[in-house]
Amino acid sequence: MPEFRKPHSLTDVPFHYCPGCTHGIVHRLVAEVIDEMGIEGDTIGVCPVGCSVMAYDYFACDMIEAAHGRAPAVATGVKRGNPDKFVFTYQGDGDLAAIGTAETVHAATRGENITVIFINNTTYGMTGGQMAPTTLPGQVTQTTPYGRNPDVEGFPVRVCEMLSTLSGVALAERVTVTDPANIRKAKAAIRKGFEFQKNKQGFSIIEVLSTCPTNWGMSPVEAINWLKENMIPYYPLGVFKEGAIR
């Protein structure tokens, strides 16, 4: 019988994430892909500011902590200086789609050979549940106490759809981790991203629809159901762009 082990690319430091948070699953998927490709020694990860700010303690490859939103620029610097290494960023929605929009869009349009893992949970989790660029219309957060009103706060950003218009993007895929079947699909997408990178075929982004039970004020199971009922209709799963750019 196969033994359930922690991937080698994760350290022994216990995660600090809240119960039911899906960061842990996604960390594990990234680490499994790194293990399976045998590239831990050649991989450099870049962490965001947000709940996964301390991912540098969890991944066993070399890690860099970036300023808020700047991970794609930092990753660009690493990759340009070390074109044969693997470089990934791990970013949340506020980091990637608000303060770091310019860095995201331009790394993508340059076709940087990096892989971006994008956690979309419609919330600024670390600071206590404020409105994110991906917060849904009507969704209540600390800074949209009456629900996000598009007339006031504007509309949520569909990142994969937006980036899929750019010529530098090799992969823009949205997945989720609500159940084993989707988790397997998510892992396959992450693997695809790293493979594009391996072959220097362009920018890859894997958007993972995720939960934040604590800030949503739900149990983990309720959160999973809320994601399925509310997020997937607005953020449909699937591949928005796939194919080597060079």
Binding site: I44, I64, A66, A67, A73, V74, G77, V78, G81
Partner: peptide, 11 residues
């Protein structure tokens, strides 16, 4: 920030 990343990698 590109300098930050590049310098981090020792270049």
């Amino acid at each position: 920030n590109m300098v930050y990343g590049c310098a981090s990698s020792g270049v």
